[in-house]
Nucleic acid binder design. Structure first.
Length: 822
RNA sequence: GCCCGAAUGGCGGAAUGGCAGACGCGGAGGCCUCAAAAGCCUCUACUCGCAAGGGUGUGUGGGUUCGAGUCCCACUUCGGGCACCA
């Protein structure tokens, strides 16, 4: 489209100027009030796509707006530059992931700058930078020292197609690899874990106080999955010295326990299995081992399927409540990793137990009276206790307390809280990540690499095969080392850390990016933390945000971040996805629309305005065949503003007239409206308000009477100022044309509306008869209730609508509305 | 299955219990022009009517209220999250 100005040259001029003059660089001792605005740092995948654009448009708006509000705004940028895509690309091309990564970082950085988003680039952070690696390892060692990092054997997800271990989040719901589509297998390996479960309660409780979207908070709560119950012992029938510990949230149903179940991984299974059951049990255990966790956890009520999934062990335990012996089964519907790995089964009040009992012919004993007309198997609701001895007649909550008291009094068990949250497995059998800084010595065991030997860096000549083994393990020069403690031969850890560890503290590094002896100076970090506004995609609602919250607390506790807040992100905003043809726009789906094509036509300003105008920021955006026309519409708005500000077609007059007041009122109402919209993230309506004001002013200015210069100037300057955070380039140019090169639009103070100009001489009052609008009257804004009623009743249209009936009730809400009920 | 969120013109959307459809896209007509592009102006929920004017209308069915797109209950559809967590 033909523009009234050279959009490419104009935008480049201002981008260069902001960079050259360091307009948005802030020092840690800045005297202004601090504001930390942050977009989630991206994985560098090359040229920015519309998802990035959307993210950075919102972020940049916040930065520029808060700056105009007089704050010192920290706006840093970095790259989450470790990760599997670069490693896979390197394997394919027989190259090094660093080559890909550095190249893609430059591409992404350039396109972010083309968008006109401004950052303090002096603070740039890249996770694969040796200086950053050093500090990531420093943190690992501090966690190790504090007992927050530990090593244990665990089942992991292994993808045969990718020949590597996958993170949980890379396994799709149906148990396949989200990249190759292969069915994920399980392998038992010695792995490093972080003890995030130590913080389960705090992570859960503090969710309540975060100014985050409810949706995200709910997801965090569900993920942590706190559940209160009782853990107690069921003694073995033939040997009461051996007890089977079970966890339940329904101790009140104890009298309904008709069998018990242990997980296939349960340590007592061997002991429980009798000779004649050995084959059946072994079969089941073998089967469970070859079934993926996802498959195993798939709900089924299919009888044949359930038969295969459970087997009698041959042993019996004594039901603590009834004193009767009940059989012990092994079944894969009980997970070895949750609770005690064993349950008391109550078919009458648990659906899974009911289905299993039906198939295996186990008795059902109800302990809660079912509601009238209840038909079905298990009843999990509240009701009066029956068949339950001392609990009979109680309701469920009271019975739970009674059951707990009974178990405690008899020393069988105690109250217990369980969590769905597991410890964080951080080992990755990958090359392109942060090496775990420990060595293994036959004499001294696990030995941390001394701090003065950090960073541990991967050598460049590692052969990245697809064997499934950690690439670093194959490099003898790296692998073989000496023990820091005894000096004898030792082997380096060959695994790297989950890349989520890098993204769990980068926001702290930004506050002190050059620190060498520690990750950051806590005093410098305290100047900015917590992040005032964090912005990113909802896809990180659980993992990244949970891990970062954990890191923050752990960093405080291990002494790296003394005195810092325990929550890193005060306010979170999650933007909607860009969809195309119903699915998420992403590189892997090959449906990207590159922003580059728009920079030469509508410019970054036009594209930014589109992202703000298209709908509420939290909603998904459908990229359709109409989208380009909407984008053009945004550019047309900017062109109209340009023509108005350059006085195209406008006659000026020096004297004011009665029309000025209406224009000035429109200007000030827009200031109030847009300011409010900015605060509540309603950018689409803010853009609409600016369009409306421009339409109003444009019509007025081109009226036969001409435009009064002072009023027009106020209107134009206000439009430019209010628009500056949204579309920063062209308004800056117009401002410079109007006020000279020494005046910078982005250094202006955010305007305040004059309250006197927010009220009109008259307002339209609606008169309803029985809820239907019958008349509109122009009245004074401070009209009294009585006057409003009188005026309404005197209106001919109202009289006609009443058809002679006298009003039985009049609701008068001056000056907006009067409702007359006949 | 459970938990969240959403549903408004041809389309994206606006409306904090008080004029439904702001703003934009698309569409129709007009001005300008030799013509086009660009720009500008008017109209554009549905429906009855020549018109003035009337009726209907925010997924469906109920309810609260003088008054409901907005609040409550039930349901339908779509989207998202969790899903043997004992």
């Amino acid at each position: 489209m033909a523009r009234p100005f050279d959009v490419v040259a104009l935008e480049k001029k201002w981008q260069d100027r902001w960079r050259r003059e360091g307009t948005y660089e802030v020092d840690n001792d800045d005297p202004r009030e601090r504001y930390y605005a942050l977009c989630m740092y991206p994985y560098p995948s090359g040229v920015a796509h519309q998802g990035h654009v959307r993210n950075y448009v919102f972020g940049d708006l916040v930065v520029r707006y808060q700056t105009m509000r007089g704050k010192a705004v920290l706006s840093p940028f970095g790259f989450d530059s470790f990760g599997l895509p670069a490693e896979n690309a390197a394997i394919k091309a027989h190259s090094h992931p660093r080559v890909f990564t550095d190249q893609r970082i430059e591409e992404l950085k350039a396109s972010v700058q083309e968008l006109g988003a401004v950052y303090d680039w002096r603070r740039e952070v890249r996770s694969h930078d040796p200086a950053y690696i050093r500090q990531s390892q420093f943190i690992f060692l501090k966690f190790l020292e504090a007992g927050l990092a530990y090593r244990a054997e665990a089942p992991v997800n292994w993808c045969p197609g990718c020949a590597t271990v996958l993170a949980n989040e890379q396994v799709t719901a149906d148990g396949t690899c989200d990249r190759s589509g292969d069915v994920v297998e399980r392998k038992n390996l010695e792995q490093w874990f972080f003890k995030i479960t130590d913080y389960a309660d705090e992570l859960l409780e503090q969710v309540d106080h975060l100014q985050w979207p409810e949706r995200v908070k709910t997801m965090q709560r569900n993920w942590i999955g706190r559940s209160e119950g009782v853990e107690f012992e069921l003694p073995l029938a033939e040997d009461p010295s051996v007890g089977l510990r079970v966890f339940t949230t329904r101790p009140d149903t104890g009298f309904g326990v008709t069998y018990a179940v242990v997980a296939p991984e349960h340590p007592l299974l061997e002991r429980l299995t009798t000779g004649d059951q050995r084959d059946a049990v072994a079969n089941l255990v073998e089967r469970a081992r070859h079934t993926s966790e996802v498959e195993r956890s798939a709900t089924t009520t299919d009888g044949a399927e359930l038969t295969k999934r459970g087997a009698f062990t041959g042993s019996y335990v004594v039901n603590t409540f009834t004193g009767e012996s009940v059989p012990v089964y092994v079944a894969d519907y009980v997970l070895g990793t949750y609770g005690t790995g064993a349950i008391m089964a109550v078919p009458a009040e648990d659906e899974r137990d009911y289905a299993f009992a039906q198939v295996h012919g186990l008795p059902v004993v109800r302990t809660v009276a079912t509601p009238e007309g209840f038909e079905g198997g298990a009843y999990a609701g509240d009701g009066v206790k029956i068949n339950s001895g001392f609990m009979d007649g109680l309701d469920v909550p009271a019975a739970k307390r009674a059951a707990l008291d009974f178990l405690v009094a008899n020393a069988h068990g105690e109250a217990k809280v369980n969590y769905r949250l597991r410890d964080w497995l951080v080992s990755r059998q990958r090359f392109w990540g942060c090496p775990i800084p420990v060595v293994y010595c036959d004499t001294d065991g696990i030995v941390p690499v001394p701090l003065d030997q950090l960073p541990v860096l991967a050598p460049d000549d590692v052969v990245m095969t697809s064997s499934g083994q950690s690439p670093l393990a194959t490099h003898e020069g790296f692998r073989n080392t000496t023990c820091p403690t005894c000096g004898g031969p030792a082997r380096r850890e060959a695994d790297t850390m989950d890349t989520f560890t890098d993204s769990s503290w980068y926001f702290l590094r930004f506050t002190d990016p050059t620190s060498t002896d520690r990750p950051f100076d806590p005093v410098q970090a305290a100047a900015w933390m917590p992040v005032d506004q964090y912005i990113g995609g909802v896809e990180h609602a659980i993992l990244h945000l949970l891990y970062a919250r954990f890191y923050m607390k752990a960093l405080v506790d291990v002494g790296i971040a003394p005195g810092l807040p325990r929550e890193p992100f005060t306010r979170l905003f999650t933007q909607g996805m860009i969809r195309m043809d119903g699915s998420k726009m992403s590189k892997s789906k090959g449906n990207l629309v590159a922003p580059g094509q728009y920079y030469t036509t509508v410019g970054a300003d036009g594209l930014r305005l589109f992202h703000l105008f298209v709908g509420p920021p939290a909603d998904d955006v459908d990229w359709t065949s109409q989208t380009d026309e909407v984008i053009d519409g945004c550019a047309r708005f900017l062109d109209r503003l340009w023509r108005l500000a350059t006085l195209d077609d406008i006659t000026l007059r020096q004297e004011g007239d009665e029309s000025d007041l209406a224009i000035r009122r429109a200007v000030h109402k827009t200031i109030a409206k847009v300011s409010d919209d900015y605060e509540r993230w309603s950018y689409n309506t803010a853009v609409a308000a600016l369009m409306e004001l421009l339409n109003t002013v444009g019509k007025w200015a081109r009226d036969a009477r001409g435009a009064h210069e002072d009023t027009l100037n106020e209107a134009i300057d206000t439009l430019l100022t209010l628009l500056a955070p949204m579309a920063p380039h062209m308004p800056a140019e117009l401002w410079e044309m109007r006020h000279g090169t020494s005046s910078h639009l982005h250094a202006q103070t955010w305007p305040t509306a004059d309250p006197a100009l927010l009220v009109d001489d008259t307002v339209t009052m609606v008169v309803q008869v029985n809820g239907k609008v019958r008349a509109r009257l122009e009245v004074s804004p401070d009209i009294s209730e009585a006057d409003a009623t009188a005026a309404a009743l005197a209106d001919p249209a109202v009289i006609a609508a009443l058809e002679g009936a006298s009003p039985t009730r009049v609701v008068s809400r001056p000056p907006r509305m009067v409702n007359i009920v006949p």
